[in-house]
Design a protein around this nucleic acid. Structure first.
Lengths: 144, 144
DNA sequence: ATTATCCCTATCGAATAAATAGGCTATGAA
DNA sequence: TTCATAGCCTATTTATTCGATAGGGATAAT
């Protein structure tokens, strides 16, 4: 499996927003980009897609920023990947010019593999991912 | 999920070799390429990788060609994908420059997704794939 | 010897992904 | 009401990957 940078950035950004908005605060593109070490202009495009997929809410203007649309436990990884990466969890094998054996094999295998991915990413939530992605340091603080 | 053409070609080629070598015959690059509608020069590269992965055996010279190294029921889809596509079933998430949250999230999620893919492709064999990819026509012949 | 086959590497072109850029719009604070 | 600070959106450039092409070896049967 290969992750696109976009999927990686998007997941990190969502986790970042989740962590930094636990008491309802907002976080800005630039802050996230700095913390997660991502080009903030590229991140902007990603956050746009995440908002359009109703995963985050944006407020404009001074003191604006992003917050999660719903709790991290209600955001499934499949939601995120679908919003950002049209190919990794597709709805069907692309229809190409193949025919016969080639096409049958592709369809059949694709179906199984996609099912496995879907099951995996549908089961896992952002909250779980964050829990496992964070380590507490000696003094009990989050190390991010 | 997205299949690379290489993986698709490789699976079709293996299936083709399996079908056309049931009594120990060999099949050539050009024949496979014609039947499966693949550039034979590109197929050559793919078959090279499959041979280096010990999935097929090649004989050189006139009357040469390819045959399976072991029965199709002993070839797992994961073997094929590993031989052809270094990214789809990788051994570990690539080590990039990320650190902290980003890296942890990537590792964690990658681990699960890869596990799901592995389970799926380890379970399925080339023989099973062929069985499902072939349809008999009215007169009972294979339609390929 | 000649021919048919696999072997191997280099290279090209197109598609895709990542990143950059710049102007527009809305909102809160001064 | 003005201004600074955010998000919004699209166009463009650059880098990377993939599919394909090309061409010359090595080897074995005839």
């Amino acid at each position: 499996m290969k992750f696109t940078a976009k999927a990686e950035y998007g997941l990190a950004a969502l986790a970042d927003i989740a962590i930094h908005s636990e008491q309802g605060e907002k976080t800005t593109t630039v802050e996230i980009a700095q913390r997660q070490n991502i080009s903030h202009k590229y991140l902007e495009q990603i956050l746009l897609q995440l908002r359009q997929a109703n995963l985050i809410r944006a407020s404009k203007g001074q003191k604006g920023g992003y917050s999660l649309m719903r709790p991290a436990s209600g955001i499934h990884i499949s939601d995120v990947l679908n919003a950002l990466d049209s190919s990794i969890l597709a709805d069907a094998a692309e229809i190409g010019s193949e025919s016969g054996l080639r096409r049958n094999i592709k369809d059949c295998l694709w179906d199984k593999m996609n099912g496995a991915m879907r099951a995996c990413t549908d089961r896992m939530t952002l909250a779980e991912l964050i829990e496992q992605g964070i380590c507490a340091d000696d003094s009990g603080n989050y190390v991010i």
